[in-house]
Amino acid sequence: MPEFSSELPLPHEPQQGLVERVYRAPGGREIPVLYARSDLRDDHGEPIGAVCVASDITHLKRAEGSLREAKQMAEEANLAKSRFLANMSHELRTPLNAVIGYAEMLMEESDERGLQGSVDELRKIQFAGKHLLGLISDILDLSKIEAGRMDVHLETFDVADMVEAVLGTIRPLADRGHNRVVVVCPASIGFIHADLTKTRQILLNLLSNAVKFTDHGEIRLTASKTLRDGTPAIQFIVADNGIGMTQQQLGKLFQAFSQGDSTTSRRFGGTGLGLAISKAFCDMLGGTIEVKSQLGVGTMFTVRLPYSDPHELSLSRRSGSFSRTVAEAARAAAARAAQLKV
């Protein structure tokens, strides 16, 4: 007859609910058992007995072990995939940059010689090369995030200058779709201490999406300072009056390689990585990104990112202390970079 394992409590112990026990068979084999015990009481609440049930869960434990092993193998395969993409993306960018560079050199030379036909053809090569480079950069960013190799670099920068630099890239794209770009970013917004590259990339992705899905409309970018849970934050709102989205499309908006539907993908192109990367960057920086949209009316993204005041940061460094906000952001980034899955 099976015996109780000497390492575990016996079933007559006063416990309620479900408890796992291990029985040991005469041959020494351990049998995992799910043990349930419930007290029986009379009408006055006095205990009069108990009901005990023991179920053999050997098959359940084996299934759990198989699932754990499969999960570990899947995670290892995903990590290997991310590392492979990161390495391949880097190797692809090097020759592609050379192609773009030579195309630009040939464009200048053709322009000097008055060969306008050649300039137009070379411009197509340059545009296609830059488009491909952008796609590769997105894949590289995504693979770095998944592999936990994306770092946060904090620096002091002027918000208005950063916004103007982003608009320099977006305005030509907006002009092609006959869109008007409206910017509300007061110069008095001043300097902040945050991750410039990721903040700029988030805005570029959101504005690029707004331009892509809007025709003969308006794209509005609003930048302001606010508080988020008592912590200083910079807020960016990107709104458009483009095609908008349904609630079903909003549900999978931030998934990698996902777009609204197959029709959207065929008509507007793209890989569906921009918003996934923006969401990942917001998470890494300790911020948030929210979206509201209505089909046929438009879409509005709201991004809030924590920052440190450069003046307070300077004072804290002189006094030998370090900004609490920056320190917390760095710790959070280090933890999230290792765990983040897009």
Rank of each mutant, 00 (worst) to 15 (best):
L275F: 06
G298P: 13
V303E: 01
F281G: 04
T264K: 04
G286S: 07
Y307R: 06
G272Q: 06
S308F: 09
E312L: 11
Y307M: 05
G270W: 00
L305V: 13
G296M: 05
Q294H: 13
S278Y: 05
L285D: 07
L273D: 15
A276M: 02
Y307C: 06
D309I: 09
S278H: 05
M284W: 11
E290D: 15
S278K: 03
K279P: 14
D309N: 12
Y307I: 01
M300T: 13
M284R: 12
G269T: 02
E290W: 09
R266A: 03
T271A: 15
G269C: 09
C282F: 12
P310W: 00
Q294I: 14
G270E: 02
P310E: 03
F301P: 02
S293L: 08
T271Y: 04
G270N: 03
K292V: 04
D261Q: 00
I277R: 01
G296H: 02
G270C: 05
P310I: 11
K279L: 10
L275Y: 01
P306D: 02
L273R: 11
L285Q: 06
G287K: 09
M284C: 03
F301W: 13
L275Q: 02
F301H: 03
S265R: 14
K279T: 11
T288Q: 12
D261V: 01
S262W: 01
D261M: 00
D309T: 07
Y307W: 00
T264G: 02
Q294A: 15
L295C: 13
L313D: 08
V297Q: 14
P306G: 07
S262C: 10
G274F: 04
M284P: 00
I289E: 07
K292I: 00
G298K: 09
L305P: 09
L275R: 04
T288G: 06
T299V: 03
G274N: 02
P306E: 03
S265D: 07
S265Y: 10
Y307D: 13
Y307S: 11
A280H: 06
L313F: 11
I277E: 05
D283C: 08
S262P: 00
R267Q: 07
D283W: 14
V291T: 13
D309P: 01
D309H: 05
T271N: 09
S293P: 00
M284Q: 11
L295G: 07
T264Y: 05
S308C: 08
T264C: 08
K279V: 10
P306A: 07
T288A: 10
T299D: 04
I289C: 10
T299F: 07
L285M: 13
I277W: 01
R304V: 06
K292G: 12
G287C: 06
